[in-house]
Design a protein around this nucleic acid. Structure first.
Lengths: 211, 211
DNA sequence: CCTGCTATTGGACCTTGGGCCAATACACGG
DNA sequence: CCGTGTATTGGCCCAAGGTCCAATAGCAGG
């Protein structure tokens, strides 16, 4: 499938740890990259990754802490999973990290296999999230090409309403609805109303309410 | 809405803590019940609760530990959320608890408001889960009333296939498909194919594949 | 043996959906 | 002013869905 291996971003202020972790993930066939601080990582990757990746972050760091980095990622809608490592973490930090969606939280010294397992899990999750996200944005793109009227018609069509009923709702003639309906199916690249319903469900497009 | 308040199950081997927590949740208008051990709780509630509830569990207990109790609940497909409290928990336990879906993990001494907040969050989540679960089981019930043939026809109808195509797939006449299709809509209490598609999506019923 | 359920089919009739071609009105920008 | 895009409507025709009607055959249970 993908010729390039997934990426593992290692963020730790301890250069020797960075080196050793990078060596570990590269031996596992992954693309390991290191950053001495959260700021350095954010600067290098202002946008969420578009290919499978995983972060390995130290909890305590000068400047932005690991938790704050995770927070920033969440705010930028990055779905990149985070694995925490820490020498002297506490339970409240662990809880916050996990509540914010961390894959896991390892305490030093940790087993290398545990870390690789966690990274693998994160990558797998990210792969799934990216795939779902791409499908959603593809649908959203098509939806953008719809005119307001077509959107309106679509919201009625996916309720299963007859053309006649839609026409009554919009105060137009049935024939007009037919035209819009056909254009909606064409633009959304749906072969049937059933498929259209599924597409709308995937992007959370709500059906209209009977007035 | 509900005349009876949500229930909070308190599981702790320390009787005095049980009493004090029970008092706390009752003052918050909730129905607090205490159990001296995980075994006692499981015995009293072998089946998952059908009304909004939340567990407050001590990590360390003689016999089954809090984590093991949580594990049992997961295995019995109980969606009842768990709030952990612990005097001397460690990070691995916290990680495991959170990965198993715990609402949070509080360390003693904890702030009463924090606990009530966590309980409230758990109850809210459980409410949503129960509501979704009831809808799903309602749909499943209706689906059980379908004959094999009707199920087969439904799996084609929700792909958006025409009666003619379904008939070809099943080697029957188009008219027969019409009959099944009508019965499917009736039994599933769906007003339209669009609604049927949504019902099937909710319970994860897959559409048939073109052969 | 009769009854009821299921699967199956047939026909007649009406409603609905969809494709094709054409047309008007309106707003926006070159 | 003209071309483009959007919204709207019309007719014609055919395909498909839905609703009545009635009927046959297999199969399990009383």
């Amino acid at each position: 499938m993908s010729l390039t291996p997934p990426t593992v971003f290692i963020v730790d202020d301890d250069a020797s740890i960075c080196r050793s972790l990078a060596r570990l993930v590269r031996q596992a066939g992954l693309d390991g990259r290191t950053y001495p601080s959260a700021e350095a990582f954010l600067e290098a990757h202002p946008a969420p990754p578009s290919r499978p990746a995983c972060l390995v972050v130290d909890l305590q760091m000068p400047g932005l802490s690991g938790l704050e980095l995770q927070q920033r990622l969440l705010e930028s809608h990055s779905s990149c999973p985070v694995v925490f490592i820490s020498g002297n973490g506490d339970i409240p930090s662990t809880v916050r990290a996990m509540r914010q969606g961390a894959v896991t939280f390892l305490t030093k010294p940790f087993d290398n296999d545990d870390l690789l397992r966690a990274i693998g899990e994160g990558l797998e999750k990210h792969r799934a999230t990216l795939a779902a996200g791409q499908q959603v944005s593809s649908i959203r793109e098509r939806m953008k090409t719809l005119t307001e009227r077509e959107l309106e018609v679509m919201s009625w069509v996916i309720t299963g309403a007859l053309n006649k009923q839609v026409a009554a709702e919009l105060n137009v003639v049935e024939k007009t609805v037919k035209v819009h309906r056909a254009r909606v199916l064409e633009k959304m690249q749906a072969q049937s109303v059933a498929e259209l319903v599924r597409l709308c469900a995937l992007v959370g497009f709500a059906a209209a309410e009977p007035s």
